[in-house]
Amino acid sequence: MISTKQRKTPVRLLQRVAAVIIVLAVYGCAPQPLYRRPLTPATAKPRSLPAPKPAPSSPPSSAASESPRRPLLEEANIREQDLKTQEKATPPITTSKETSLPPSVIPETFIPSTPPPLADDSSLLAKIAPGTPPQRAASLRLSEEGRMLLGSGDYAKALNRLERAIAIDSTNAYGHFLLAKAQYGLKRYKESLNFLEVAESRLRGEPFWLAEVYALRGENLRALGMADRAEDSYTKALSINSGNRTASEALSRMQSDGSATQR
């Protein structure tokens, strides 16, 4: 006798295949949006566009090669409440001349023009060379698996892989970044910021990834309601890699929200 479950399976399968085809067809024909929505809804109130900021005074890689000063104790443990104070001390961050346009004429897609977009460096497998130490290689492979799992939204499995990755190689900054991404996906924004701080200190020589760090930090800050700081972080990401989609889309959205409020 065929069980109900067995009988239903082929029908359900057909239904799902049909649904996927329909979705693909509709999606394929639909016009592409100018920007994707940011990963989290803004919790801060929409606000007007910030005042224009001076143009960048240094090339994009300057943030990476910035001469590190030994931070004082007070700087070492940056907490949520410290972030705002620190923000005031941070020198204004670059935007392009377009940003000085009044809010009403700001184009929807906001990308600072100075630095050229960096090539996609997100594949971690590409970082494994014949001479890569085995621990490093295994850690990178696990991180790559974690990255894929994050892409498919499977945070539990991704966390499992990524925690293993940093256990094998604690200097794997990509692992820390991806853990930050997982924590962000799980709406644990403070945890995510902590992982980002670890990742940042090790990714100074990698502009593509550093921009990713700043963009994700922006997302976390935005989710925590710190819109000003989020915007600075997005801008910083774009000043390093103008091709960083997360940052450009988030900024565009913030600006369009701001202009909508003004209108």
Binding site: N77, A156, E191, N194
Partner: peptide, 18 residues
């Protein structure tokens, strides 16, 4: 069913250089 998961939690308290 996973009823509890304790993740790795980190906090940077000393600069990496120091």
């Amino acid at each position: 069913r996973v009823v509890e998961k304790r993740d790795v939690r980190v906090e940077k308290v000393v600069p990496a250089q120091t």
